[in-house]
């Protein structure tokens, strides 16, 4: 193995790498895959650069993995790299999900299809709830963050206020308090 930094991938290669990751990523854990692919195996990025990107991808709104695709794509291939990586993670998986749903619609005449899908939905809600509980566990055990969490829940789930205003108000308040605490 040569010690020199490998040639950065072309936009087309980035598209293919992210397409493969997008099509094979089931149920989360994506950042681990990306770390293995770009830092450990291909050695295209330093671990620090990767982790900086990851914390930004998590802090900014947007799906973490699509944010990471744009971050990595930009670092490795500038504007075209970012566009190619983003298209790679979104477009093939978007086409596949439409195909899968069409397959389910074709089976919609059978009562069993709807029943099986309802069972899948229940298990999938477990996925959402466990993610929520994991996120709740990472909230600091102090009155203010806990109050923000509870207020957000009540506003969205019970009062059914529009999410965007709730998040804007609760988010900026909470970020401002975190910032002033340093």
């Amino acid at each position: 193995m040569p010690v020199s930094t490998p040639e950065p991938p072309s936009p087309a290669q980035l598209f293919l790498i992210f397409a493969r990751i997008g099509l094979t990523s089931f149920g989360g854990g994506l950042s681990g895959w990306l770390l293995r692919e770009f830092v450990q195996q291909r050695k295209l990025m330093s671990e620090e650069d990767f982790l900086n990107g990851l914390s930004i991808a998590q802090a900014l709104p947007g799906v973490n993995v699509t944010n990471m695709a744009i971050w990595i794509g930009y670092r490795l291939g500038g504007r075209n790299g970012a566009i190619a990586s983003w298209l790679g993670i979104v477009v093939p998986a978007a086409l596949l999900i439409v195909l899968i749903s069409t397959a389910f619609s074709a089976l919609a005449g059978f009562a069993l299809t709807h029943v099986a899908l309802a069972g899948a939905a229940c298990a999938a809600i477990g996925l959402s709830l466990s993610m929520g509980l994991t996120a709740a566990r990472r909230v600091p055990r102090r009155a203010f963050p806990l109050a923000i969490m509870a207020a957000t829940f009540v506003a969205v789930a019970i009062l059914q206020w529009p999410l965007i205003w709730t998040v804007l108000v609760a988010g900026s308040l909470s970020v401002a308090v975190s910032y002033s605490r340093g």
Partner: peptide, 24 residues
């Protein structure tokens, strides 16, 4: 960045729990 990450944590937890509640 640190303030963003920390400050958004309770908001994200609240919204994800709300999503689970609505789906349930």
């Amino acid at each position: 960045l640190k303030a963003l990450e920390r400050g958004l944590r309770p908001v994200a937890a609240g919204t994800i729990l709300a999503a689970s509640y609505v789906l349930l």
